[in-house]
Design a protein around this nucleic acid. Structure first.
Length: 859
RNA sequence: GCGCGUGUAGCUCAGUGGUUAGAGCAUCACAUUGACAUUGUGGGGGUCGAAGGUUCGAUUCCUUCCACGCGCACCA
């Protein structure tokens, strides 16, 4: 056995250990299970190829790796499947920016060359984040690494589209959608975020036909009046009831539009009368549908005013707004303009204001898919941790709208849709396409659109396991065991995986799986968001981020992992990142390292002590607790339990006692158990030491311990009592300013710790009985330890006395109030409670007597 | 606007209807040339966000309010 260096230097071991695991194929699932344990599987949420490892990845990676390593050690055939997402818009943006720097753009390049450029980019940079995950120690089965644009993935996506289409779950329709003019694409409702902005609320007079009267409407978007097809009021609005059914002449456009009544109008807002623009506003579209109003599209996909609006045609929205207001003002039709705060829809990728407009797109019909996904949650076949996320899931799915899945981008999955040449986008459109893998023939061309990135991500657990083939992997590892993710993609991704999985594994080809077997995963773990120390979002642009790679370089992967876990509470929504916690975890790693060095240097010693029994009991208890905590996904609590056990019980107490007495065999056995329990949290350090000791095989595939001994509550109680002796002596020594080197006499009866050890830990000499020269110092339970003090210490004795008097006063007050409470309790509280309280009073009374006695002897 | 979460020591967080509310970090004092200064020991530090209510008793349960965070929403 070689000698360990004085400090644990992560950089000297991490890479070497990781290679050792890879060389031994340790990340692959075990083939057979002697005791028939069920398979355990997790799919890694695929990071975007444009991404760089951030704290969220580091946290989620650690959580998943702990679960994977724990189950692997428990003997389950375990697999963690990694991969990356092609991230349509994000990646296209990155490459487009590159092109702009080169002085060109994608349109000049053309579609085929542009796609080639994206692939080139992907090959060069797309694996960066995977390499970074390895640095964390992630034990993914890299042989299964999947990219959402792999050949088989592309096939699977098309297969899914076709299956959905054939079952009526995908349709092409003309509807109001969100248009991002910068991305030049439609985006789904979930890709829109709302931002509060200051704008202007303009009130405009609309003249009534055959009258000199007006009806005034308020709007933040005057330019859309060009597309108005009605004015709406609330049916019960007394101001307008007599106008309902009349006609107004729409200024500028000179069209006749009706005044209608609809209960969705808010009488309180503005003038209570609203202009209705069905082609460019969601509420107006809904009202338009009810009242069968025409929709006039006055804003096009290019973000410019269409030729539906004569002299405004070709203007940008801002230009049109100014021109409309000027024209209205010229006709004296503006009543007033006020500052107004309202929320504006913007694209979550680029922040561009989203334009609602009517467009023909492809949609997933959610009505057909949501019910079974809801049922899964309601019947708890799918569970959430923390459980409150179930409500969010149910609520969102209950109110879900159809999902717009086509995108007018170039980078992504092409739709398996074929058009008769020249028919797409024309009035003859319906019926002029076919859906299928192959082109129907010469005169057909493939739809140029691509699918929403989330459409392919939604198939992730399926395709990574071989779907659409019902192959052995799918049979073995599907449904996966848990899905761990951040909350911000619950709707974008998690929900969509659930209904996709449920729908696409139906039927004979999949052994007529029942409902539970069709879910992509059984449990959803929503981990906290890592915020910076001020509780603000970590953001690269604001410079408020912490780079996990930098932490790994400075403190090591294990410290980064353990420090994160130590801070985490799985039920809370945030972690305010605390760098000292990572440093502390680094110190912890070093502490363990030095415990190993100490054991290495320790000659074998069989000098049995009750302390051996005590540490065995503690170890057994902690083994049980940690197992149960991991099982319940309470990883933060598990880390803290281990930390306390290792540093306090094992290092500070047991090893210190071992310097006097005890069994090195027991010490080594417990240390081995510690390495095993700690392995999921600190894999490199523990494996390094495991190899150092030449233990059998690799720790990564070693068996998870079950408690080797019965916890012994009695000995643990005795040990706590013994510890209080030592603490009381140390406290007294500090209080009386006794020189640390000075040996004094001590009398105190200990049960677990021998006199020799006691003597060493307190720097005292044992005395068999209290002599007259000895002074009593009460322990927390009131029982005294006796110390024989040197002459100079007696000067400080007054301190001990006054401390004791303060303590006595407090206890006397406590006793009085306790007696009062128990009087009040009589006849009101349950008998058992009263008895417990009375016992407490007896204890307090006895303790007061003990302290009084001590005080008397001190005087 | 509706909903969810959080508020406990200087900081980050545990915890509990009933004894004197805990930990880590930070801080202060002391120690240390044999596992470890990435160490050890001891100390100081909190009217548990505010106000009401339920209860013999509330930091804990309920209500309201305040602050912060996060969702959802068709406020034209």
């Amino acid at each position: 056995m070689s000698e360990l260096p004085k400090q644990y230097q992560p950089a000297d071991h991490e890479q070497r250990i990781y290679q050792l695991w890879e060389e031994n194929n340790a990340f692959a699932p075990a083939a057979a299970t002697p005791d028939d344990k069920p398979p355990y599987s997790i799919v890694l949420p695929p990071p975007n190829i444009t991404g760089r490892l951030h704290m969220g990845h580091a946290l989620n990676g650690t959580i998943q790796d702990i679960l994977i390593r724990y189950h692997r050690m428990q003997g389950h055939p375990t697999v963690w499947i990694p991969g990356t997402d092609h991230a349509g818009i994000a990646t296209q943006n990155v490459v487009e920016k590159q092109l702009i720097k080169e002085g060109t753009d994608r349109r000049q390049l053309g579609r085929a060359k542009f796609i080639a450029r994206v692939w080139q980019w992907q090959e060069e940079y797309g694996h960066a984040i995977i390499d970074q995950l390895k640095k964390l120690g992630s034990s993914c089965d890299w042989s299964r690494t999947t990219f959402t644009m792999d050949e088989n993935y592309i096939k699977a996506v098309q297969h899914a589209f076709i299956a959905y289409y054939n079952r009526g779950c995908i349709y092409r329709g003309q509807r109001l959608v969100n248009w991002c003019s910068r991305c030049a694409s439609v985006i789904s409702d979930l890709e829109v975020v709302h931002q509060d902005q200051m704008g202007t609320l303009t009130t405009i007079k609309y003249p009534l036909k055959d009258s000199h009267e007006f009806i005034s409407v308020a709007t933040t978007r005057p330019e859309t009046m060009l597309g108005d097809t009605a004015v709406a009021v609330h049916p019960e609005d007394k101001r307008y009831q007599k106008l309902v059914g009349k006609t107004v002449i729409l200024p500028l456009a000179h069209r006749r539009i009706p005044i209608i009544a609809d209960h969705r109008i808010d009488q309180e807002f503005g003038t209570g009368a609203v202009k209705i623009t069905p082609a460019h506003d969601p509420l107006d579209a809904a009202i338009g549908e009810t009242h069968q109003l025409p929709a006039i599209k006055i804003i096009g996909e290019d973000g410019l005013i269409t030729n539906q609006a004569q002299e405004f045609s070709g203007l940008t929205i801002e230009e049109a707004r100014l021109k409309v207001i000027a024209a209205l003002r010229a006709k004296d039709l503006i009543v007033d303009q006020q500052d107004h705060q309202h929320s504006v829809a913007v694209c979550y990728r680029c922040g561009t204001t989203v334009e609602p407009l009517i467009s023909r797109q492809w949609f997933v019909a959610m009505d057909k898919l949501k019910d079974v996904a809801l049922e899964a949650a309601q019947k708890d076949a799918l569970t959430f941790s923390p459980p409150r996320w179930k409500d969010h899931y149910v609520n969102w799915l209950t109110n879900v709208h159809d999902w717009t899945i086509s995108r007018q981008l170039w980078w992504g999955h092409r739709l398996p849709v074929w058009w008769k040449k020249g028919t797409r986008g024309t009035e003859q459109e319906p019926g002029s396409f076919k859906v299928g893998l192959e082109s129907p023939g010469k005169n057909w061309e493939q739809d140029p659109d691509v699918l929403d990135t989330w459409f392919s991500s939604a198939l992730w657990p399926l395709v990574t396991l071989g779907w659409p083939d019902n192959n052995p992997d799918l049979q073995r590892f599907y449904p996966t065991s848990v899905l761990s993710t951040a909350r911000d993609i619950l709707y974008l991704w998690v929900v969509r995986m659930v209904f996709s999985g449920l729908e696409l594994t139906r039927g004979e080809s999949y052994d007529n799986r029942d409902f539970n077997q069709r879910l992509p995963f059984k449990q959803v773990l929503i981990h906290p968001t890592v915020l910076n120390h001020q509780g603000k979002r970590m953001s690269k642009s604001l410079g408020t981020g912490v780079d996990p790679l930098e932490l790994i370089a400075e403190y090591g992967a294990d410290a980064t992992r353990f420090g994160l876990m130590y801070q985490m509470n799985h039920d809370s929504q945030a972690i305010k990142f605390d760098r000292p916690a990572i440093k502390n975890a680094r110190n912890f790693a070093n502490k363990i390292w030095n415990m190993a060095r100490f054991l290495d240097g320790l000659p074998d010693q069989e000098n049995p002590s009750p302390a051996d029994q005590w540490i065995k009991s503690r170890s057994a208890k902690v083994t049980g607790q940690v197992t149960s905590l991991i099982q319940r996904h309470q990883l933060g609590e598990a880390a803290r339990t281990l930390y306390d056990f290792v540093w306090q019980d094992y290092a500070d107490w047991y090893i210190e006692i071992l310097k006097t007495e005890g069994s090195t065999k027991v010490a080594r056995q417990i240390f081995k158990n510690i390495l095993t329990l700690l392995h999921p949290f600190m894999p490199h350090l523990t494996e390094t030491l495991w190899q150092h000791y030449n233990y059998e095989g690799l720790l990564i595939t070693a068996a998870w311990p079950s408690p080797a001994d019965q916890p012994d509550d009695e000995i643990e109680r005795q040990m706590i009592s013994d510890q209080s002796i030592i603490e009381t002596v140390r406290s007294a020594r500090a209080l009386l300013e006794l020189p640390p080197g000075l040996k004094i006499k001590l009398h105190a009866p200990a049960a677990v710790i021998s006199n020799a050890a006691l003597s060493r830990l307190t720097n005292t000499e044992p005395a068999n009985r209290p002599t007259k020269k000895m002074k009593p110092f009460p322990r927390p339970d009131g029982q005294p330890v006796y110390l024989e003090l040197p002459a100079e210490a007696v000067d400080h004795l007054e301190r001990a006395k006054s401390k004791l008097r303060v303590e006595l006063a407090k206890l006397t007050d406590l006793l009085t109030s306790q007696k009062l409470i128990v009087e009040n309790m009589k006849g009101k509280a349950p008998a058992a409670k009263i008895i417990a309280k009375e016992r407490l009073i007896a204890n307090t009374t006895q303790k007061i007597a003990e302290l009084n006695h001590s005080l008397l002897l001190l005087e």
